[in-house]
Design a binder for these strands. Structure first.
Length: 132
DNA sequence: GGGAAGGCCGCGC
DNA sequence: CGCGCGGCCTTCC
């Protein structure tokens, strides 16, 4: 008997009537993205972590893709500091333009996360350990 | 830097 | 209801 409709397999505590967990996650993600300051960028994975949803980088992308909410989606890029859209595509250009307009510097098609990354722990760990 | 492997999971077909 | 595809990531080679 497959576990009597128990509370979910992983996390998620039986969402009460009409509150799909996916929406709660989306909310956490969107509010997190909302916090990225102007002139700074974050990564899908970092946003997921900050939102309390570790390993859910993909979900961040999915949510940003289909949300209609006005959030600074352009401040989210992949772990390589690159825009996760085909170079030359509309989305790519728009994201890049918006970022540069905020003062984010692109070097060789990528952004220096140590410099514009948010939260700052994005790449400063090495330096933190060594330098300092 | 680059490619493969494994994770994670919502959504549409 | 199974399966493939994402605005991905990390680890290992």
């Amino acid at each position: 008997m497959r576990k009597a409709k128990g509370p979910s397999k992983k996390r998620l505590e039986t969402t009460p009537a009409g509150a799909p967990e996916s929406l709660k996650s989306a909310d956490l993600i969107l509010s997190t993205v909302q916090k990225i300051p102007r002139g700074k960028v974050s990564t899908y994975g970092a946003v997921a972590d900050a939102a309390g949803l570790p390993r859910r980088a993909r979900l961040v992308g999915t949510v940003l893709r289909q949300t209609s909410r006005r959030v600074p989606w352009h401040r989210v890029m992949n772990a390589s500091g690159r825009i996760s859209f085909p170079e030359g595509s509309d989305a790519y250009l728009q994201q890049r333009t918006r970022l540069e307009r905020e003062g984010v510097l692109f070097i060789g098609g990528r952004v220096d996360l140590k410099r514009h990354g948010w939260p700052s722990q994005l790449g400063s760990l090495d330096e933190y350990m060594w330098k300092l």
